[in-house]
Design a protein around this nucleic acid. Structure first.
Length: 280
DNA sequence: AGGCCTACACGTCAGCGATG
DNA sequence: CATCGCTGACGTGTAGGCCT
């Protein structure tokens, strides 16, 4: 066994095909999961049919988390009135600590804040904070901060998708509301397109009534296509993120069930000994 | 150094279900 | 029925490790 419920060591690479095996393992242990896919020879059509009818990862994960306490849950969006800032992913778990394959410790705190710390030092040096700001569909122009790290010289480094610029705010009040809510007293940042006032991917639309000639129609079709591609791009990213989370969830569930299984076997052996004493 | 392999991330397409 | 979101499949690029 290479990991435990609250001290995960992610040794498995996240493979596209890996979740299927893991699902099967969970189903085998729990004997309740009907979503397991058989590893036998299934023709591609049938396999595709099975796969395409699978519910979303959010749904599956939420079902799992309702079964198993302590399993992270993906909150549904629209939690604005409930105190959760918009676009902030909330992990409904007590603070969990994981260890990565590189030896780093990852702590998921309430409110979705992830802290990454490097072992070896006194635990403070190298501390990195990361706040997920993209649980749901981002508003137009919103950008996902994928990773924030504090380098040795104290400067903040942000890696964001696309060719965008991160600008540190002079004061926290200047930050967008969803970011300010997420960071608290931390310095806040704005993400801007470097050359244009329009957010990345936003294309100016002509009003429908003004489309007369074929060229305008072609431009409109191109615009629609680019918009669809952009949305699908973001959706694919989000889908992959959820899938990774789902796989991690399955991994932790496997661990829990294996421990339970072991305990039950031991209990059974004990009961056997009690109920059938030796008669010689 | 260069070739090969592997893992990973990404973009795109296709197909499905949900929704208005 | 059109539209949209989600997700599997596929192709591509890149980084890192290993071998010659």
């Amino acid at each position: 066994m290479w990991w435990h419920q609250h001290n995960l060591c992610f040794r498995h690479p996240v493979d596209e095909d890996y979740s299927g095996d893991l699902e099967e393992k969970v189903a085998t242990i729990a004997e309740t999961d009907e979503s397991a896919e058989s590893e036998g020879v299934i023709d591609s059509h049938k396999r595709r049919e099975i796969l395409s009818r699978r519910p979303s990862y959010r749904k599956i994960l939420n079902e799992l988390s309702s079964d198993v306490p302590g399993v992270p849950k993906i909150e549904e969006e629209k939690s604005e009135e409930e105190g959760t800032p918009p676009n902030i992913a909330t992990m409904a778990v007590p603070t969990s600590i994981y260890q990565t394959s590189t030896g780093q410790y990852i702590a998921i705190a309430q409110g979705g804040t992830i802290q990454i710390s490097n072992p070896g030092s006194d635990g403070v040096q190298g501390l990195q904070a990361l706040t997920m700001t993209n649980s749901g569909a981002p508003p137009p122009g919103a950008t996902i901060v994928q990773y924030a790290a504090q380098s040795a010289d104290g400067t903040q480094q942000f890696f964001v998708p696309g060719s965008q610029v991160v600008v540190q705010d002079e004061e926290t009040e200047l930050a967008p509301s969803h970011m300010a809510a997420a960071t608290g007293d931390m310095p806040t940042y704005q993400i801007r397109a470097p050359t244009t006032a329009l957010p990345q991917g936003v294309v100016m639309a002509a009003s429908p009534g003004s489309l007369h000639n074929p060229q305008q129609l072609a431009e409109e079709a191109t615009r629609k296509r680019e918009l669809r591609l952009m949305k699908n791009r973001e959706a694919a990213k989000e889908c992959r993120r959820r899938k990774k989370e789902y796989v991690k969830c399955l991994e932790s569930r496997v661990a829990v069930l294996e421990v339970q299984n072991k305990k039950l076997i031991e209990e059974l052996e004990t009961l056997k000994d009690i109920c059938s004493p030796k008669t010689d």
